[in-house]
Amino acid sequence: MDKILLNGMEFYAYHGVFQEEKTLGQRFYVDAELEFSLKKPGQSDDMNDSIDYGEAYEVMRGVMEGRPMNLLESLAETVASELFRSFSPLNACRIRITKTDPPIPGHYRSVAAEIFRERDE
């Protein structure tokens, strides 16, 4: 399937299980693969036949900078749901949300949750 990729989107938000995360906040990085046929927009060169990258970013920003959630898994599910709600051509999406420097014991560069969802017909 064809894809539009939005890579390395950065958001400052207040998600997490620990109170410090909810109070201080931290950076989150989101990568998204939006799967749908690019044939029609590729032939027409018309934005109305595609998914606007800026609009997709705003949908994801609304979730990421919105209501705090405990789990990356919940964030990813909500992002996917909002993308399907917003863009009827979207057939499937892969969402990866990365949290750098998680406040858990040990040494980590980051932790992440990645989901792949297909549109329910």
Rank of each mutant, 00 (worst) to 15 (best):
M9H: 06
I115D: 05
V30E: 00
I4S: 05
F84V: 08
S81Y: 10
L75Y: 00
G8Q: 13
A56I: 12
L72I: 12
H15P: 01
V111H: 02
D45V: 04
M64R: 04
R96Y: 01
P89Q: 11
F18H: 13
V17F: 09
M69R: 14
L72N: 02
S74N: 13
V79T: 05
F18V: 08
F116C: 12
M64T: 05
K39C: 02
T78Y: 02
P41W: 08
F11Q: 04
P105D: 11
R67C: 13
A112T: 00
E35V: 12
Q19L: 14
L5D: 09
T98C: 04
S74T: 13
D120K: 15
D45Q: 05
R96G: 00
R109S: 15
V30K: 02
L34E: 03
T23A: 10
L6C: 07
A112L: 00
G25V: 07
L34G: 02
R94D: 04
D101A: 15
T98V: 12
D46V: 01
E114K: 01
R96P: 00
Y12C: 08
T98H: 00
Q26E: 09
M69T: 07
D120A: 14
E77I: 04
I104K: 01
E114I: 03
L5P: 01
T98E: 05
N7Y: 13
F36K: 04
I51Y: 03
M64N: 04
E121I: 12
L72Q: 04
S44K: 08
D49F: 05
R61A: 13
D2L: 03
M9L: 14
S86F: 05
S88T: 11
E65I: 08
E10T: 15
E10L: 14
D52F: 09
R117A: 12
F84R: 05
G54L: 14
F84T: 06
T78F: 01
P41Q: 11
S88H: 10
D52W: 07
M69N: 02
E121Q: 11
D46I: 01
A13E: 02
A80D: 02
E58C: 08
Y108L: 14
F36S: 06
S37L: 08
L71N: 04
F87C: 10
D120W: 09
L75I: 15
H15V: 03
N70I: 08
E77G: 14
E121K: 10
K39G: 01
E114S: 10
H107E: 13
H107W: 10
A112G: 01
R67W: 08
E21M: 09
N70Y: 06
M1R: 06
E33D: 14
P105H: 13
S110A: 13
Y14A: 03
S81E: 15
F11H: 03
R94S: 13
A92V: 07
M9Y: 06
P89A: 07
L72H: 02
A32K: 05
A80M: 03
A13T: 02
R94P: 01
E65W: 05
R109E: 15
R67M: 13
D31N: 15
N7K: 15
T78A: 06
R117K: 14
M47A: 13
A76H: 04
L83G: 02
D46S: 05
